[in-house]
Design a protein around this nucleic acid. Sequence first.
DNA 1: GAACCCACCTGTAGGC
DNA 2: TGCCTACAGGTGGGTT
Length: 283
Amino acid sequence: MPELPEVETVRQGLAKWVAGRRIAAATVHHPRAIRRHVPGPDHFSAVLAGRTVVDVSRRGKYLWLPLDSGDAVVGHLGMSGQLLMQPPGTPDEKHLRVRFAFDDDGPELRFVDQRTFGGLAVSEGGAELPAEIAHIARDPMDPLFSDAGFVTALRRRRTEVKRALLDQTLISGVGNIYADEALWRAKLHGARPTDALTGPAALRLLGHVRDVLAEAIVAGGTSFDALYVNVNGESGYFDRRLNAYGREGEPCRRCGAPIRREHFMNRSSFSCPRCQPRPRSRG
DNA sequence: GAACCCACCTGTAGGC
DNA sequence: TGCCTACAGGTGGGTT
């Protein structure tokens, strides 16, 4: 599942391959992939033809391609999205949704997405920061991310700490997997109330979030080759050394207790029952 | 305004 | 072997 490290790896790969290139044609193969582009597929194609990609930017799990027109192509990979560079003529992927051909006849950019949770849209005037993602908080790898501001906002919330970590308007880039990993490192159960966290504890948690993401970016970067900008995740992600996520019944690497799995927000949470005891009360 | 819940989507794994 | 169900989970819109 693409979280911040995977998206950052894609961003770095795309920047090398599409920055400075002029789009010859953008072809929509599945309308759902551009459902956020309200004017529809024809408009999507028309407004992109002839435009030059200036750069590739990211905030949290969102990517956007600033264009020379001042607009931007904004995208989210969702659960299964991939942005691939492919030589023209390569057989279409089964789940090819959008194809970008360039006027230099070099490698195409293809948006492939099995489950179509992801999508692309053109953001008018969005080269600097697309309005569609202005509500997304900065991510902890962003130099302008405010640690103090995060701690204050977190402790002001009346919710559970894992819910808060997954709230992209509070801190972006963290998904279910890295939230579990950061909580394991911080020895905190995800159900701990945010307003009961001390300032130093919140700051320590943030440090663990940042460490997990930074280590994953390094690991993710090693799993992608230069041309094939792969977001599949299997080779990159599961090679990484996870301490909690997906380890139900396996011994905690810290204390040996079997990792437990709990249902939370229609998904699974993994934690150590000894290192991360459930809070005695929700208050 | 904040917090919470659920639909969206499809391939895979497991049970029968 | 084939069918059915549960599961995976980020986001946004609707509800509380």
